[in-house]
Amino acid sequence: MGKNKGARVIITLECGCRNTTNSDQRKKGIMRYTTCKNKRNTPNRLEINKFCSYCNKHEVFKEIK
């Protein structure tokens, strides 16, 4: 039988630039990262500053459902 992972869940982080239409963007699309978090320690939605290859700069990535 499989083990229960407990409080750790897999989440998806999505770039905040997906709604902007900049002329300097290289290509259209949505940049996403996957990671895991402990929902007991961080019950709120996660916001991390990561590199977006579509914007070619660092942007705020927010947790989505």
Rank of each mutant, 00 (worst) to 15 (best):
E14C: 09
I11Q: 02
F61L: 03
Q25W: 01
T34D: 10
H58G: 03
I11D: 03
C17E: 06
D24C: 11
M31K: 11
K37V: 07
E14T: 03
K39A: 11
K37R: 14
K39R: 11
R45K: 09
K50P: 02
N38P: 01
E14W: 04
Y33G: 03
I48F: 08
K28V: 13
Q25N: 07
V9H: 07
N41M: 15
Q25D: 05
S53E: 10
N19T: 05
G16C: 05
E47V: 06
E59F: 03
Y54H: 09
E59I: 00
K62N: 03
I11G: 00
K27T: 06
C52G: 01
N19E: 05
T20Y: 10
N22W: 03
L13H: 00
V60R: 11
R40G: 04
R26L: 06
E47R: 09
R40M: 15
F51H: 13
N38H: 06
K37T: 03
E63M: 09
D24L: 14
P43F: 15
I30K: 14
Y54S: 01
L46E: 10
L46Y: 06
C17M: 14
F61E: 01
C15D: 06
D24S: 11
I11K: 01
G16E: 10
Y54W: 09
Q25G: 01
E63A: 04
T35I: 04
T42C: 15
K27F: 07
T35P: 02
T21L: 07
Q25Y: 02
K37P: 02
R32P: 00
C15K: 02
R32E: 14
R8A: 13
Y54Q: 03
Q25K: 01
R26A: 06
C55W: 05
E14G: 04
R18N: 08
S53K: 11
K39N: 06
R8S: 10
L13Y: 01
C52Q: 00
R45G: 05
V9W: 05
R45W: 12
N41V: 12
C15A: 09
R8W: 13
G29W: 06
C36V: 04
N19A: 06
K50I: 02
G29D: 07
S23V: 08
K28S: 15
N38R: 05
T21P: 02
N22D: 04
R18L: 12
K57P: 00
H58F: 13
K28H: 12
